[in-house]
């Protein structure tokens, strides 16, 4: 199945502004950074998380710990996927107990990834609160999960796909909407 690009919905400036706003909102909602920690979901969530941590440092002057989650081992479709996904490391080298965790991912869609991430985080300890920040919320939830911080809400059809491209992994920052090419 191939996808053809339909429209660019965010460019570099828009991605940057959205992340700056999300960083401010995280600080506003959590008041202090003392117990704050940012956890990105591999892959692109990790890069977004790093940028948010940097923004928070610029705005508030304090460094908050960052963690990286690889949710492969918690997936609920391992027996159904066509190819065994590659497993990568999870890095959380701080105690998450009593922390306010902000999970970061690029696109929020069915909510299944977030379900995995929540299960995995809870295996590391008992955080006070877990919040969710995403760059794009495209709807079509299959679980009762919502984001606390959203870069952009993008109503989509199931035939469409959202592609987030970031400098760290793809050479440039942009978000495009693609459509299934049926031909």
């Amino acid at each position: 199945m191939t996808f053809k690009e339909k429209a660019k919905i965010m460019d570099e400036g828009a991605v940057q502004k959205a992340l700056t706003r999300i960083s401010h909102e995280i600080l506003e909602k959590n008041k202090e950074t003392k117990n704050l920690a940012i956890v990105g979901i591999r892959y692109r969530g990790e890069f977004l998380a790093r940028r948010i941590v940097e923004n928070i440092k610029k705005i508030s002057g304090s460094s908050v710990p960052i963690g990286i989650l690889d949710i492969t081992l918690y997936r609920d479709d391992l027996t159904e996927v066509a190819e065994q996904p590659q497993v990568h490391e999870t890095h959380i080298d701080f105690d998450i107990s009593d922390k306010n965790i902000v999970l970061v991912d690029d696109v929020l869609y069915t909510g299944r990834t977030i379900r995995c991430a929540l299960d995995e985080i809870i295996d590391f300890g008992r955080p006070v609160r877990i919040q969710l920040a995403v760059l794009i919320d495209r709807g079509h939830r299959e679980f009762p999960i919502r984001a606390d911080f959203v870069g952009k809400n993008v109503p989509t059809s199931l035939k469409e796909a959202i592609e987030v491209r970031l400098k760290e992994s793809d050479g440039k920052d942009e978000v495009v909407i693609c459509e299934k090419d049926d031909r």
Binding site: L78, Q86, H88, E89, E120, D123, F124
Partner: peptide, 20 residues
Amino acid sequence: LDTTRSFKEVSTRKVKKVPT
């Protein structure tokens, strides 16, 4: 070997178990 590196981390957690 690459997969092993990822699994090694699991045994260092407080809860040494994943539901895979």
